[in-house]
Design a protein around this nucleic acid. Sequence first.
DNA 1: AACAAAAAAAAA
Length: 892
Amino acid sequence: MYHYWGKAAKGSTAHHLLVYHCLDVAATLRALLDADKRLHQRLHALAPAVAPADLDALLLYFAVLHDLGKFAPAFQQQRQDIVDKLDGPPAKRICNAHHSHLGKAIFFDEDIVVAWQPSLLCRDGWPHKDILAPLTDAAFGHHGKPPQDLSDSNLRLPPSTAAAIRQFMGEVCSRFLPGPLTLPGGDAANQAFRPVSWFFAGLLVVADWLASGQGFAYCETPMDLAVYWNERALPQARATVADCGMVSPLPRQGGGFHELLPHIEQKYGPTPLQAYALEVAGRDSGPRLFIFEDVTGAGKTEAALLAAHAVMAGGEAHGFYIGLPTMATANGMYARMAASYRALFMDADTVVPSLMLAHGARGIQDAFLHSIGLERGRDGESDAADGEQPDSGAFCAAWLADNRKKSLLAPCGVGTLDQALLAVLPAKHQCLRLLGLGRNVLIADEVHAYDPYTTRLLETLLTFQAGLGGCAILLSATLPRRIKQGLAAAFCRGAGYPVPAVSADPLPLATRLANGVFTETPLAQTRTLSVAVTLCHDPAEALDRLVAVHTAGGCAILLCNTVDRAMAARNLLAERLPPADVLLFHARFALCDRLAIEERVLAIFGKGSTTEIRRGKILVATQVIEQSLDVDADFLVTELAPMELVLQRAGRCQRHNRKWRPAGFVGPAVLVLSPPAVDEPGPGWGEAELGKGLFVYPGHDVLWRTAQLLARWERVELPRDARELVEGAYDADALPTPAALQSAEDKQTGKASAEKSLALFNGLEFSQGYGTDAAAGHWHDDRETPTRLGEERVTLRLVRVVDDGLALWAGEGLDAATCARSEVSVPKHRGDALAATDAWQERLDAFAATLPDKGRWVRLVPFVETETAGVWHCALPGTTAVYSREGGLNYG
DNA sequence: AACAAAAAAAAA
Ligand SMILES: [Fe+3]
Ligand SMILES: [Fe+3]
């Protein structure tokens, strides 16, 4: 058994013996379990039918066996030079497959079974293959997917190899499985290892990656396995685990409000929701779900942190992960967390907890990049010199940061919800993400912001989280009752709780599921906004009002449902007002221009602005403004949209405390550009007023009910009235869908239910345990399982044609950040319309080759400046697209 | 055609 290599160096015959690598991985698993007692206990709780000691023994045993497939000739012969050096077995015909599939086949091969069967004796006789399947699939699936059964059942193992494997297994069995195990029998047996297998799969990948890294020295000399285990494997494993960033100090015990949230000024006490979190969250044990519904800016995130801390302090979670709907909001949240997350933990001079930023474009976030590998507060070498505060600021262990798949393993994480959803999709290495989430508290922010497909995936994630014994906190503005019901039910399915009926009580509302008990707690409103709502059917009237705001010296926002309508409205306003006073903001800008506009918007409409800066500014925007920008307008006009969006938009009107408001616009007021809210709308309802915006919100019945309700209400008080209005907009019993809008409704509900079933089909099934069956067999086909649905899109990377060649739009540099800042995403057919001639393609390819990513995943599009300064025309022959920094991309 | 939004490299 010492004639087989497991790891090899490139360019030399230096190698690590296979049996040692196997022990390294088991030792790393041992070290991981010892380092995270809370997780260790969770594993035991997930397999209640198995004695804890027996479970530990089995997990370590299968960890040793994870690379069993590397004994096979197919693997060994990849380095014939080392085989020769080791005097390995000759093989003429081999069974060719990846060693993870081979490992499983070898384990169940009849020549091999005899070597382990006596050690796995259980009460009812030999364990059936199905009982162990979740564990074997997790062990042999350490390359990110469960192994497949080989189509060719003949392994063609040379006799010497079979003998070596039997010898190895014999030694491993006597060492790791000393006494007869008592495995469960009867009907429950097949279920026994299914829940724990999800964690085991993730732990094994972590152990394998750690044990394949720098911390483990190659060893080529044969020695007794027990000696290697004690003197090499375990010490190296413990050192490596201590360094990898997965372990963190214990949570702060008994901290009060201001100690846990040091960024909140002393003069502010907890809001009702935060007081609730402090008081209630630590009370129970076991899987818990909290749903906090309140308006944005009411301190929901802090409440969630307090609740998460209570769960951590109770010894039931390691840390937290905050999942958000966009990368931009994630960046913002990361900045907030960086300043305060360490207060949730005890001060320890040995370990600093890692804070992770997890999303696709984090590579250009300097604040995060600078935090990687900084050993502040640890070895004290660098910080003393530059006088930095050693105990503040973000830190992220280098090992965690070098691969996106590892990012959820950090004790504290902020990122897109999509990163978390990938844990319950048959994506490669999903088990890593699931392990990280499962041991943390999952906090999902802005839950109302997702489509039916993604919401359904979130349900699946909640089932997993509960099934793994974990906790989750959902934060949202008004969550329609049916969506809330689905989320709560999904959590109950995983936790084994009875499914309650959630209410549609007014906001703010705290919902809690713990120990099978369901409670809803209405809370006092902290900040309220009373908005006058007027419907208006004439766009000219809306423009007049905006001009009136300008004249009165105030500022306003006009929200359009499509980019083209926003561009058109901007042009109309620019005819009547100084063009410099009219801003345009939508998503069809290169990132650098978009960020500049966003900064300008915040400077004008943000909290720090002044009456003078705000004077006469009119912003025309699309839905980009809905995304968590804290802006305040004196007056707001919006095109009709589904109720929850209208209310969210209305919340942007006079939300800050400002002394001065323009004459005629004192008090929050919103004008909704809407088709008439008639009782019997005819065919084509809304086409005149909303145009192509009707395609953006195809649930025309919801639009109609929204208009009906707003026409009746005239004034709404937020957040109190939000619930009634949102429920009413979706309630076809109270306001039956008019005949002319029925087909639109049918189409929309049909589409939503199709998307939901697709999400159900794509998502993994917790109850199956780790294995191919959990993915309905589609783990191995190439079908895409995305986190969001939608029309196909392409990313355009804008390129400037300059005197001496090509340059990126965002600047002179050719680095990854300048690339990202030059990009804009468009529908695929729009991108396809910008086809390059062969000559241009050659030129663009040559330019792409000089970029860090070689232009993969994007399409380079050249622009050349026209006679009009600032207006650029697409340089490709036959194209009409135009770009400017003020207007963005116009398809022409 | 009509919004915005995310994802994209392993552990030889
Ligand atoms: Fe492997
Ligand atoms: Fe391995």
